[in-house]
């Protein structure tokens, strides 16, 4: 998918520039993008290192685990099909907590564990179960409390108040997750 789109972007861009007599733009952009990519990498790096350090402390101290336990209480309402106390609930909540802290890479292993665990409950092994789809909706609507990377990018481009997006993002993400879950339930009824 990415392969096709990437090629498509470049081909369309260059051909359009050739037709509109804009080839200089392309020459500039080829050199410019290298500089931008390197600048960006160097500026995200320290912020990322800092945040991964803090996150490690939260993980080792057992804070992430404790928050996950609190969350699995709420999850009973979102996943009525999962039996009480099933281990998939704890994987799902660990995944959500990691996502909230902006730790995409830490969230993925928990997500995969959650899927395995949900597969055990699944009656048709080649077909997605209702709980699996609900879990995916929770993931794709992106419940993030601290969007670390975005904040560091905003800093890099001289934002007056880089963290000003945090609170609005929380409001938007919770509203859209809520609506997403409703859509999920409606689609589950229809299918």
């Amino acid at each position: 998918m990415v392969n096709k789109i990437w090629g498509f972007f470049i081909i369309i861009g260059i051909i359009f520039c050739l037709f509109t007599d804009n080839v200089d733009v392309i020459n500039n952009e080829i050199l410019n993008s290298c500089k931008t990519a390197l600048d960006m990498t160097f500026k995200i790096f320290p912020v990322m290192a800092l945040w991964l350090g803090i996150a490690k402390i939260a993980e080792v101290s057992g804070l992430l685990k404790k928050l996950s336990l609190k969350l699995s209480g709420i999850l009973k309402f979102i996943f009525p099909e999962i039996p009480k106390g099933h281990q998939s609930l704890s994987y799902i909540s660990s995944n959500i907590i990691a996502n909230m802290f902006g730790l995409g890479n830490a969230a993925t292993p928990f997500g995969l564990k959650a899927m395995q665990s949900l597969q055990e409950l699944n009656t048709k092994k080649d077909t997605a179960s209702r709980s699996m789809i609900t879990f995916l909706v929770l993931n794709t609507s992106g419940v993030t409390i601290i969007p670390t990377t975005i904040i560091s990018l905003r800093m890099m481009y001289g934002s007056v108040d880089p963290t000003s997006i945090v609170f609005p993002c929380i409001i938007i993400t919770f509203t859209s997750t809520f609506i997403g879950l409703i859509i999920d339930r409606i689609l589950a009824r229809l299918s």
Binding site: D126, M132, L136, V137, G142, I183, L187
Partner: peptide, 28 residues
Amino acid sequence: ILTLYFGSVGIKKIRYSLWAGLLADLVS
């Protein structure tokens, strides 16, 4: 997420999950 998560447990019929996921994005 869809490819990775479903791929890891061998799910082939993904039912309405793509629509649910994309609609959630659209809402955001």
